[in-house]
Design a protein around this nucleic acid. Sequence first.
RNA 1: CCGCUCUUAGCUCAGCCUGGCAGAGCAGCCGACUGUAGAUCGGCUUGCCCCCCGUUCAAAUCGGGGAGAGCGGACCA
Length: 331
Amino acid sequence: MDAYDRITRNASEVVTEDEVRTLAESPDGKRAYVGYEPSGVLHIGHMLTATKLIDLQEAGFEVTVLLADVHAYLNDKGTFEEIRQTAERMKEQFIAYGLDEEQTEFVLGSEFQFDREYTLDLHALELNTSMSRAERAMSEIKSGETVKVSQAVYPLMQALDIVYLDVDLAIGGMEQRKVHMLARDTLPSIGEDSPTCLHTPLIADLGSGVGKMSSSKGVTISMEDSTEDIEQKVNSAYCPPTADPEPDDEGNDRENPVLQIFEYHVFPRFETVVVERPEKYGGNLEYDDYESLAADLESGELHPADAKGALANYLDELVAPGREKIRQATQ
RNA sequence: CCGCUCUUAGCUCAGCCUGGCAGAGCAGCCGACUGUAGAUCGGCUUGCCCCCCGUUCAAAUCGGGGAGAGCGGACCA
């Protein structure tokens, strides 16, 4: 796999393709970053962008993980003390998940976001941004039902972080795209370049296949889950024998979350996937890539129940090291 | 600073006028049927009715005070 393919594997969009191609020409030493609001427990949404960071490290990038304590504070996620305590635990879980400790720089937002120069640049961006634009950028991210002024500042700081962390490629889930587009539009107003961005897909709701999996409501998978939790959650997941399900009765588009997790979480981390299957149903199956597994599910060769069993096993393997970290931390 | 509206189950809301066991839809959970899930059937759960005080035999409902949210207006030498 060449550098460009490795960088863009499983991305739902890059902005812009030309800019990423330029980066891919000499990826060594290029810098990428993702920012996370510290939440204490790493869940499958974090894991998706983390997998992308691992791709980038393998392509030669230096990776920075921003533990965005100030952002979490501005987004009404708790007191500063609470947030900073969870940040440290989150860092350990990222390493347990597979980020290379040597190649990954963890930065706390509060380490540089209170600097005088940063603050002045922030005010300059505020002057160049309308309330409605900032609010729109936050529509997929904000917590609570009331828009706070702090939440209008939030996306502008995210734009500035890209400058201050000297980032060549900004990574985020698709829910971050409006923030990144705001950054591209507004950073030139203070004499900075528009950042290059890469967005990862969002996994559909595990139970229904409709909309986006959410950690706040509905079912998610996290490093807190036991093997039994994972088996139970995967087993009750929506999984028709196709990658392209019909819309539901209300006309909502549906995805197959089981296949999505194979595609975005399992195959990027495992060379081959073995589906254990009773002799009665034809014995074990082995896959080297997502496409052949999806094709077998589509044809009926692979039954969803067997696919789920395999998915639970591999997910458990991905979660196990982080689970162990949590276990140690709570003793 | 003034005025108006809203607050009831996880969600959207009805009930309030005219006081009398706390409701519906959706969601969720459990079974049946499918070698998964979903769909379909059958069953079940869910509450600080925003808070405090008062009236009353009895308050989600009436009165007073307060909080939160939404909207409008005024002030602007």
